[in-house]
Amino acid sequence: MTAVSTISASSFRKLLLGALVGATAVTALPAQAQEEVNVYSYRQAYLIEPFLKEFTEETGVKVNVVFAKQGLAERLKREGRNTPADVLLTVDVGRLQELVDEELVKSVNDEVIEANLPAQYHGPENQWFGITTRARVLYTSVDRLEAGQVSSYDDLADPSLKGRVCSRAGDHPYNVALIASRIAHNGEEATREWLEGFKNNLARKPQGGDRDQIKAIRDNVCDVAIGNSYYYGKMLDNDEQRPWAEKARIEFPDQNGVGTHMNISGMAMTKYAPHEENALNLMRFLTEKTAQHMYAEVNFEYPANPEAESSELLTSWGEFKQDDLSLTEVAKYRKRAAQMVNEVGFNQ
């Protein structure tokens, strides 16, 4: 089992002195303040600290955070009824569904949250909620392809692109969710055929992360790649990586079909939350326009609340049709999608 990283009280005091987060209310667990809420987070500190500080300033409720890369579900299971955690923040519908499957979270039936978030971003029985969205997009070479020449996920399997496509591992959660959505839309047989065609078009063995695929376009390794939209924003905002991104354009697939596949970052209230009222208030806050816009600005993710303002960069990419398939439906096919990746030898 992978150890869960934590921030000690002394280390966090040094962090404060280092002015990383200034006078933020975020600290390490456990804490003893009466008006508090405890968060376990897979999201990085720089992403969530700004709006947690804003929450504390608005409500007076102190937010204590444990940051981790993995292992939080296992930690919650170990802690059981004695867990100090109230809210868990994570990415990908798969991780959220894992919490449901392990019976680690509870239903939250709240009119404010439900009004702020479209139904497709509600988990089964409101046991989780999406708070930001990211599009699974296509990146295409600005030098070797015309805009719109590759416009659908189906095109990834088109024989005309043989040896011209790059991807990270097929069993990465981002790709598994996309494959699961295609199973939901098209059935297993058609999805398997598509995945085999996708594999046959790969320019190299799947490797690296989403940014590495864009770099591969710059390096003439491939002409088409698949990745999450926010990585493109991050690269444009990075002096070293901007030249990579400028060699690729972002394309939102299937605008004449079901729309572009969307995944989420999300939140859930733990089953034994000791500060349930404060947890609910925090979850409400995270769906409101202020926090939603802050998230969008910091990490180039789309607000899940349709009334929240997006970042200027994302707005410049224009509006696009999003696949409105329920992510609960996507989660249902994730296991089969992962199996299919292995069956076709996608990563080999």
Rank of each mutant, 00 (worst) to 15 (best):
T2W: 05
A3M: 13
F12I: 08
F12H: 11
R13L: 15
L15N: 00
L16M: 13
L17V: 12
G18E: 09
A19K: 15
V21F: 14
A23E: 15
A23M: 15
V26E: 10
T27M: 08
T27N: 15
L29Y: 08
Q34C: 08
S41Q: 09
S41Y: 12
Y46D: 08
I48F: 05
I48C: 02
P50Y: 00
K53Q: 14
E54Q: 15
T56Q: 05
G60R: 04
N64C: 06
N64A: 15
A73R: 00
E74D: 15
K77L: 11
P84S: 08
V87I: 14
T90V: 06
E98Y: 12
L99S: 10
L104H: 02
L104A: 04
V105M: 10
V108R: 01
N109T: 14
V112I: 12
V112C: 11
A115Y: 02
L117G: 01
H122N: 13
H122M: 09
T132P: 05
T133E: 14
T133A: 12
R134F: 14
V137S: 10
V137Y: 07
L138M: 06
D143A: 14
A147P: 08
A147Q: 04
G148N: 04
G148M: 03
V150E: 03
S151C: 02
D154L: 12
D155F: 03
D155H: 10
K162R: 12
V165W: 09
S167F: 03
R168K: 09
A169N: 11
A177S: 13
A177R: 03
I179R: 01
I179L: 14
A180S: 04
I183S: 04
A184E: 11
N186K: 14
G187A: 11
G187F: 13
E188A: 04
E189D: 11
F198T: 04
L202S: 06
L202W: 03
L202N: 04
R211T: 12
R218M: 05
D219K: 13
D219P: 03
D219V: 06
N220S: 11
N220L: 02
A225C: 08
N228M: 12
K234Q: 00
K234I: 00
D239V: 15
R242S: 08
A245L: 08
E246P: 02
A248V: 02
R249N: 13
P253N: 05
D254G: 06
D254F: 03
N256H: 12
N263M: 14
S265Q: 15
M267L: 14
A268L: 08
M269P: 03
T270L: 11
K271C: 01
P274S: 03
P274G: 07
H275Q: 14
N281I: 01
M283W: 08
R284G: 01
L286P: 02
T287I: 07
E288W: 06
T290R: 11
A291Q: 00
V298T: 10
N299Q: 10
N299P: 00
Y302C: 01
P303C: 02
P306L: 07
L314D: 01
T315K: 13
S316K: 07
E319N: 10
E319L: 07
L325P: 01
S326Q: 00
S326T: 00
A331T: 02
K332I: 03
R336I: 05
M340S: 12
M340Y: 13
N342P: 02
V344I: 11
G345I: 09
Q348N: 12
Q348L: 09
